[in-house]
Design a protein around this nucleic acid. Structure first.
Lengths: 361, 361
DNA sequence: GTGAAAGCGCTAACAT
DNA sequence: ATGTTAGCGCTTTCAC
């Protein structure tokens, strides 16, 4: 059950080695007639190479492993998709495992993957790295896509949150806003402080004085956004726009505004961050900055395959820029959609990612 | 780079075969002392079995392939998770490939997977099956999880839409509603007609006369739900509750109600279908029937591994029941959450699936 | 340009 | 209970 090179050799009248060369090594000098004949026979017999045998011989599997904390996390599927689209162009396959934020499971996953079915590993949204002795000594290259644990580390691809926050603020300023509030992310989170820094930097760049009264601590959740917004509405000289550090808090702020009798965006503009699916579904649709998840995955895959080809050569942390998706919550004219931060290379896919969610079946 | 059995044999003073048996065959009679010694040496040397070699020898890879139309479709990740959780208990890994609704790509994927790195295949949300000659003759077992193409086919695990629709209607009746409208799914879809049939059946079971005036054609989309609801509000004797065939249309109906000055759920109850993520995020949170995606994946994996173990033995289509998630859009007391249709076996995971979405980082 | 032969690491008869 | 041996299907020297 499974045609082998030997059978093809017998059927075609050539030796196994010639058959192998004809079929898998386009550069090897094989008589054109021979090659054609062999290819023909192979096709007719339905030959499918036995990858196990090939891997055993060549010590490479054309497969990489992806270890994700949880494939159910909102950002993980697009990261994986980004990885896979790159892999497909290079005839690689991906083995995917969840670690469930558990170092032990992650260690298991690493061990399972090291046992050779893979040539390298990408950690997608990993919140930590299990003691990687095994990994290191395996000599297999690995890369982080959207590394979640705080410290900067080589071989990782992360979002440029500073840039993204500035993008959001700049949009608001462009719309005429001067009193722009911010609802921050949960304290202690790397992305929370980066987004806040980006907010401050852009205010400065626009010559707008920073007003501490316009900054509220949030918690990444709907509730935090809601209550932070209520506080902001009560400030002596209230903001005309709010930048929420994520979409969930932006939604909370929108609902708070509505409950307070304010119209969004007419009375107050609100911009979110992350480009979560629901920002296209709620009313008003939320203007937001995307997490460049697809691109991070794509880039991580590119770097990993590079390492697999050329051997380990650590690279510095790479930051990927998101872009602004103009929708309804800021009052901007949607038709003149800006594409700041858009990398033409992945445009088509990006548009795909911004498409309306699939109807369900 | 990679410790082999032979090295362990040398280091421990035993033969390769004894080492192999000690390490991988717990049932084989090996002297306890010997086994302990070998295990010890192997651990110390950091032995990791070479899967390629093992696969070549045993002709099984302990890996299955998953072909999904698109890992970005809302239902695909939970299906995959269901599969993977089952696989993990049995030390299987999964190779995942997208087919992008393209028969050619699907065929490529099948071919790639047939080339032996997998022992079987599950098609997750596949909208069609590429001419599966290759697949058939490979002799590898395969299973469909949430098959999307219409015709009933062996070896598939599908949702019980008829049951789910009845569940929704029964809930509404239990809340005292008698005039229950339905917004149907797009014409021609299998799930659309099944859900409509379930609606009718449950009305009959509850001795409520079916009123054609209360049925509106929808399109699976927000817009269709919105306009269908507007029509329903204008009926001579309007409904007090609406069952929308999916969550998107339910949301459209909710917004239509709000725009018409009706409060949800006080003036009109609305129930959706699918348990999409946004039903937990919008206001009011939408009561809905879940697509048993996780369970379908889990079941599909179980069936596939069974086939791998015992050889091909086709089974009939298997229907999995979803359950009702009571939230805010029907006015029911959320605290007395019903768990109809709940299979205790997967309860914990189900609860996990119903948890609030992950905060982003 | 083609063929013979060795060997990747492992498992499973078959001996003992 | 342990050792010897063959061989899974492929790639790759090394010959010719």
């Amino acid at each position: 059950m499974g045609v082998t090179l030997e059978e093809i050799a017998r059927a075609s009248g050539f030796s196994v080695s010639t058959v192998s060369r004809a079929l898998t090594n386009p550069n090897y000098p094989v008589n054109e007639v021979t090659r054609k004949r062999i290819t023909e026979v192979a096709r007719a017999m339905g030959y499918k190479p036995n990858m196990a045998a090939r891997s055993l011989r060549t010590d490479q599997t054309n497969t990489i492993g992806i270890i994700a904390d949880d494939i159910l996390s909102p950002f993980v599927p697009p990261i994986i998709r980004g990885i896979q689209d790159y892999l497909r162009e290079h005839d690689f396959l991906s083995l995917i495992v969840n670690s469930d934020w558990d170092p032990d499971i992650e260690q298991d996953a690493i061990n399972a993957l090291i046992s050779r079915p893979v040539d390298g590993i990408v950690f997608a949204e990993s919140s930590h790295l299990a003691i990687n002795d095994n990994l290191r000594q395996s000599g297999k290259p690995y890369v982080f896509a959207h590394r979640l644990f705080g410290s900067t580390i080589a071989n990782s691809v992360v979002p440029d949150d500073h840039y993204g926050a500035a993008l959001a603020v700049r949009h608001l300023v462009g719309l005429g806003h001067q009193r722009i509030a911010m609802i921050k992310g949960r304290e202690g989170w790397h992305s929370a402080s980066r987004r806040f820094a980006g907010y401050q930097a852009e205010l400065a760049a626009q010559n707008i004085d920073f007003d501490p009264a316009l900054v509220q601590q949030g918690d990444w959740e709907y509730e935090g956004g809601y209550s932070a917004a209520r506080v902001l509405f009560a400030v002596a000289s209230p903001p005309t726009a709010i930048f929420a550090a994520n979409d969930l808090m932006a939604l909370g702020a929108i609902c708070a505004a509505q409950d307070a009798g304010l119209r969004v965006p007419q009375d107050i503009a609100i911009v979110g961050y992350d480009n979560r699916e629901f920002t296209r579904i709620v009313r008003p649709k939320i203007t937001t900055v995307s997490m460049p998840v697809y691109e991070m995955g794509h880039t991580a895959a590119k770097l990993l395959l590079g390492q697999i080809r050329n051997g380990q050569e650590d690279f510095e942390e790479i930051q990927i820029k998101g872009r602004l998706f103009i929708r309804e919550s800021c009052g901007a004219d949607v038709s003149q959609q800006t594409v700041e931060g858009l990398d033409p290379a992945t445009t088509s896919r990006r548009i795909l990612l911004d498409r309306d969610p699939d109807p369900d079946r």
